Simulated assay, not measured.
Amino acid sequence: MADAATTLRRARIGDAAELARLSAQLGYPQSADAFERRLRRLLISADHPVIVATDDDARLLGFIAIERRLMLETGERVEIVGLVVDESARRRGIGQSLVDAALDWARGIGVGEVMVRSNVARDQSHPFYEGAGFERIKTQHVYLKRV
Rank of each mutant, 00 (worst) to 15 (best):
I51R: 01
E18I: 03
S45T: 02
M1S: 13
S23Q: 10
A16H: 02
E87N: 04
I66A: 07
A16R: 00
R21N: 02
F128K: 05
T7E: 12
F63C: 02
D56R: 11
A101L: 06
T74N: 12
E87G: 07
S88N: 15
V52T: 05
H141M: 11
E130V: 04
R59G: 12
I137S: 08
L42V: 00
R37C: 00
L8W: 09
R41T: 08
V116E: 04
A4G: 09
P49N: 02
L19Y: 04
R92E: 10
L22E: 02
A132Y: 01
S125C: 14
E36I: 00
S23D: 12
V111Q: 05
I137A: 08
R37E: 01
L144F: 12
L60P: 02
F63D: 01
R38N: 03
A58G: 14
A46E: 01
H126V: 13
S125G: 15
S97F: 10
M115R: 08
G27F: 07
L22T: 06
R40K: 10
S88Y: 15
Y129S: 05
R68D: 11
V99T: 04
S23I: 10
L19F: 09
R37I: 01
D86Y: 05
R136P: 05
R77I: 08
Y129H: 05
G62C: 11
F134Q: 01
R91W: 14
I94A: 03
I80E: 01
R117P: 02
R10M: 13
R9S: 13
I137F: 14
V111Y: 06
V85K: 01
F35T: 00
S97E: 09
I137H: 04
R77L: 14
R117D: 05
V85A: 03
L43I: 00
A53T: 12
D56C: 12
V147T: 05
E36P: 00
R59T: 15
G112L: 08
A17D: 03
L43K: 00
E130N: 08
V147L: 10
A24F: 05
G133R: 07
V50N: 00
S125P: 08
A20Y: 00
S88H: 15
A32N: 06
V116Y: 13
A17V: 04
E79A: 07
D57F: 11
P29I: 11
E87R: 09
D123C: 11
H126R: 08
L26N: 07
D104T: 12
G112F: 10
G14Y: 03
S118A: 09
R69E: 05
Q140W: 07
A89V: 15
R69V: 09
H141N: 13
H48N: 07
G95K: 03
I51K: 01
I44C: 06
V142Y: 10
Q140T: 09
Q140R: 12
A46Q: 00
D86H: 11
V52F: 06
V85R: 03
S97H: 08
P29V: 06
K145H: 14
W105N: 05
K138R: 14
D100A: 13
R69A: 08
S88D: 15
P29W: 06
G112T: 09
V84W: 01
D100W: 05
L8H: 09
T54W: 09
I137P: 03
